[in-house]
Amino acid sequence: MTKTKDAPKPATGKGGGGGGKKQTWSAEKAKAYWRRNLTLIGILLAIWFLVSYVFGILLANILYGVPIGQIPASFWFAQQGAIIIFVILIFVYCWIMDRVDKEFDVNE
């Protein structure tokens, strides 16, 4: 949804707030970092939507005949599975962003 008209000026010397490490942060790098972040968010939110809204609500009647353990799959997603997957999604985001931050040298 982001449309940047004027590219941000290459701001140099945006050294970390404490590290004092010299950092060159070009407009391209900023864009690349943000694109990586948006892609990851997109993938994780697609899973978030799938397990809660699609499996738990929109396909509730269709998945009703498919069992997980002793209960219907849609019921499991709506009352257990989606919540467990939500937790996993957040930690996956944390772990991957840790690595992305390091790669782009913006880690704290």
Partner: peptide, 16 residues
Amino acid sequence: AIYLLGWTGGYVLLAL
């Protein structure tokens, strides 16, 4: 499920 999903799913939005 409205409460179970509704009162947990928002944290994914918050975190991301």
